[in-house]
């Protein structure tokens, strides 16, 4: 019971903080919208072409937006000492960290999913493909937050960890990108995509169970 209360308190705290730092919170979502809307200007207004590259555009932008938001996950807690207090809690750190990751996803991942239909429509995506796009985003963006958390936890103690963070995390993001954008592409061609969706689901389950443990271990290392 006490653990559940701590878990909810962490999520609540991070949501309040995100709400009070709205400008920071809007950054990734604005980035997402801007990148996607710039593509038609760059490659020219050819509906056929845009339609065929839409899954890739949306997924790559979502991935970069997620990466852009990662650093904020532990940075301020690390700087003001709240992270130390979190680690000193008698409750299992990995559960508390999972709370932080969930709050982070609610603030950065969920908005991407909410604006994605609009942008997909904008690139001329079919409805069938749009539904699959949403499915892949719902399954894929939490994986990005969970896996990214390990990378941030490892680099939060470094003064300029941004470059290392991308190098660490990007290779782990690639499988998500491949399966997700492939699923949307297949769906727009009318092909079955169960396999890809199942793999994404498996990735999510795996990340949900396995990511908080190394993340909390890495945080303990970072504060020492």
């Amino acid at each position: 019971m006490a653990l559940l209360r701590a878990f909810i308190a962490i999520i609540r705290r991070d949501l309040i903080l995100a709400f009070r730092r709205r400008a920071e919170m809007l950054n990734p979502i604005l980035f997402f919208i801007i990148v996607v809307t710039l593509f038609p200007l760059g490659v020219g207004a050819q509906p056929q072409l845009l339609q065929s590259i839409a899954p890739g555009i949306i997924w790559v932008s979502a991935l970069l937006a997620a990466m852009l938001s990662l650093d904020g996950l532990f940075r301020s807690d690390f700087d003001d000492g709240s992270l130390e207090q979190l680690l000193l809690s008698p409750h299992p750190t990995s559960i508390l960290i999972l709370g932080k990751i969930i709050a982070h996803w609610l603030v950065t991942g969920l908005p991407l999913i909410l604006v994605a239909p609009l942008l997909a429509e904008f690139l001329g995506m079919h409805t069938d493909a749009l539904i699959i796009l949403l499915k892949t985003l719902i399954l894929g963006t939490p994986v990005l937050s969970l896996v990214g958390a390990i990378g941030v936890a490892l680099t939060v103690g470094l003064r300029r960890g941004g470059m290392i963070l991308s190098l660490l995390v990007l290779p782990l993001y690639v499988p998500v990108l491949i399966f997700a954008s492939n699923a949307v592409e297949m769906a727009s061609g009318g092909l079955p995509v169960d396999a890809q969706i199942n793999i994404l689901l498996a990735m999510l389950c795996l990340a949900l169970v396995l990511a908080p443990l190394p993340a909390s271990a890495a945080l303990k290392m970072s504060v020492s």
């Binding site: 006490a2 209360r5 701590a6 909810i8 308190a9 962490i10 705290r13 309040i16 903080l17 009070r20 730092r21 301020s76 700087d79 003001d80 000492g81 709240s82 130390e84 207090q85 979190l86 809690s89 008698p90 409750h91 508390l96």
Partner: peptide, 24 residues
């Protein structure tokens, strides 16, 4: 420690509520 471990953007009460939830 040296750093207070309180969040600037939270109110005094919110900060302490989080602390109680983390411990007993």
């Amino acid at each position: 420690g040296h750093r207070d471990g309180v969040k600037d953007e939270l109110t005094v009460q919110e900060n302490l509520l989080v602390s109680t939830a983390l411990g007993f």
